[in-house]
């Protein structure tokens, strides 16, 4: 399962700091929510259904955006791939 690296902190304002690399990032609202859900250890299915109950978005659109977002998280070395 793909999960967020343990030492990554996500603040309310959507600020993320990666203490391993020293990089910092900013997220928009949906991005912040996804990272927080990941941080809480939610599964992919749980994250998707939760976001879709919070936001007005259809499944196909969100699926596509979600995978693109995960790819960016991977590229920024914020994920643990197990």
């Amino acid at each position: 399962m793909i999960s967020l690296k343990k030492n990554i902190a996500v603040s309310e304002s959507g600020f993320v700091f990666n203490p391993t690399t020293g990089d910092s990032f900013s997220l928009n609202g949906v991005g912040t929510d996804i990272l927080k859900l990941m941080k809480d250890g939610k599964s992919e299915a749980e994250i998707k259904s939760t976001v879709r109950t919070w936001y007005d978005v259809d499944q196909d659109t969100f699926d596509k955006d979600y995978y693109d977002f995960l790819k960016m998280l991977g590229q920024y070395k914020l994920l643990d791939a197990e």
Binding site: S11, S13, F15, S24, S26
Partner: peptide, 8 residues
């Protein structure tokens, strides 16, 4: 502080 200036 960096967070504050960056995000707000």
């Amino acid at each position: 502080e960096f967070e504050e200036i960056s995000t707000t």
